[in-house]
Amino acid sequence: MIKIDNLVVSYGGIEALKDISLEVPSGKIVTLVGANGAGKSTTLKSIVGLVKPKSGSISYEGTDLTKLSTEKMVEKGIALVPEGRRVFADLTVLENLKIGAYSRKDRKEISEDLENVYSLFPRLKERSWQLAGTLSGGEQQMLAIGRALMSRPKLIMMDEPSLGLAPIIVKELFGIIKKINEEGTTVLLIEQNANAALKIADIGYIMETGKITLKGSGADLLNNDEVKKAYLGESVK
């Protein structure tokens, strides 16, 4: 679905991404894990066109993503859940969700998708008339994901969805992300929380200082001694 080949990104002469390559196959959960500053968000910004690569290619179903506008990306079935949620604080939960469907015309389908979002996140239905800015951090993250789903994406990309959330909320949220994937949506997950991300990932990439250093199934990487020591806080004998 997404294919990145030999991507290089530079900021002021310093290479933030150093010849990275990765793939996001259709129907899978793929996670890109690394510490803060590893280059994860730069990778995502390159995919959505916020950063221009120095060299390399980024394609989505054979289309050069670097030449598509945000509107065209939405039309092609790509949705983004940005870091920090970025909900519209002065609008209600329902109004935020409807904004996610702004490019769509079929009112019946929109209503059906709204009910689907509410079934995934019952708390959003209970708070549909509440201002988004008054929700808890976890509820705002649920709203950001729900808003993205309202565009009926084939691919949803999430940037640090666990950021600032309590462990119990992270567990609940990642269970829902798994369910979203099981219902047919491909997921690209950018995360510092390696344990939570790799537990649900089909494929994982470990990133350090702008390079992909490890690749494997989520289960294999969870059992990898290097990953255990560097990202899971486990001692390795």
Results as ranks from 00 to 15, higher is better:
Lys215Gly: 03
Pro153Phe: 07
Asn223Arg: 14
Leu188Lys: 02
Gly164Pro: 07
Leu173Val: 02
Gly175Phe: 05
Glu226Thr: 13
Leu165Gly: 03
Leu214Lys: 14
Ala196Ser: 15
Leu189Gly: 11
Pro161Met: 10
Ala201Glu: 01
Ala201Asp: 03
Glu226Trp: 10
Glu172Cys: 03
Asp220Ile: 00
Gly184Arg: 12
Thr213Gly: 02
Thr213Glu: 11
Tyr205Ser: 09
Ile168Ser: 12
Tyr205Gly: 05
Thr185Met: 09
Thr186Phe: 08
Ile212Lys: 02
Lys178Cys: 06
Ile168Ala: 12
Asp220Trp: 00
Ala201Gln: 08
Thr209Gln: 15
Leu155Thr: 14
Ile200Ser: 08
Val187Met: 05
Met157Glu: 01
Lys211Ile: 07
Gly204Cys: 14
Lys215Ser: 14
Val187Asp: 06
Lys178Asn: 14
Pro153Asp: 10
Asp202Pro: 04
Ser162His: 03
Thr185His: 02
Ala197Asp: 11
Leu188Ala: 10
Glu183Thr: 12
Met157Asn: 01
Ile200Trp: 10
Ala194Trp: 06
Lys199His: 13
Val170Tyr: 01
Lys179Tyr: 07
Gln192Arg: 02
Gly204Lys: 02
Ala196Tyr: 02
Ile169Tyr: 11
Gly218Trp: 01
Leu222His: 09
Glu172Ala: 09
Val170Asn: 07
Ile168Leu: 12
Lys154Gly: 09
Asp220Glu: 14
Ala194Tyr: 05
Leu198Gln: 00
Leu163Arg: 00
Ile177Cys: 00
Asp202Gln: 08
Leu189Met: 09
Ile212Val: 15
Glu182His: 07
Tyr205Arg: 08
Pro161Cys: 10
Lys179Ala: 13
Glu172Gln: 14
Ala201Asn: 07
Pro167Tyr: 03
Glu191Phe: 01
Ser217Glu: 08
Ser162Gln: 07
Gly175Arg: 11
Leu198Met: 07
Lys171Asn: 12
Asp159Ala: 05
Gly216Ile: 11
Leu173Ile: 12
Asp225Cys: 05
Asn223Ser: 13
Ile168Cys: 00
Gly164Val: 12
Leu222Ile: 07
Ser217Asn: 10
Lys178Gly: 06
Asn193Gln: 03
Ser162Lys: 06
Val187Ala: 04
Val187Thr: 08
Ile176Pro: 00
Met158Asp: 04
Gly175Asn: 15
Ala219Asp: 15
Glu191Ala: 11
Leu165Tyr: 03
Asn223His: 15
Ile203Ser: 04
Lys215Cys: 12
Lys178Glu: 10
Lys154Pro: 06
Asn224Glu: 14
Pro161Arg: 01
Pro153Lys: 06
Leu165Ser: 03
Glu172Met: 08
Asp220Gln: 09
Pro167Ser: 09
Ile168Asp: 00
Pro153Thr: 10
Ile180Pro: 01
Ile180Val: 12
Ala219Met: 14
Asn193Ala: 04
Lys171Tyr: 13
Leu155Met: 13
Phe174Glu: 01
Glu226His: 15
Asn224Met: 09
Glu183His: 06
Thr186Arg: 08
Ala201Lys: 00
Leu165Glu: 04
Thr209Cys: 12
Gly175Trp: 09
Val170Ile: 15
Met207Asn: 08
Thr186Met: 06
Leu189Lys: 11
Gln192Ile: 04
Met207Gly: 06
Ala196Trp: 01
Ile176His: 00
Gly164Cys: 09
Ile203His: 04
Ile177Arg: 00
Ala166Cys: 08
Tyr205Thr: 06
Asn195Ile: 04
Asn223Val: 06
Asn181Val: 03
Glu208Gly: 03
Ile176Thr: 15
Glu160Cys: 06
Ile212Glu: 07
Ala197Asn: 09
Thr185Lys: 09
Pro161Trp: 04
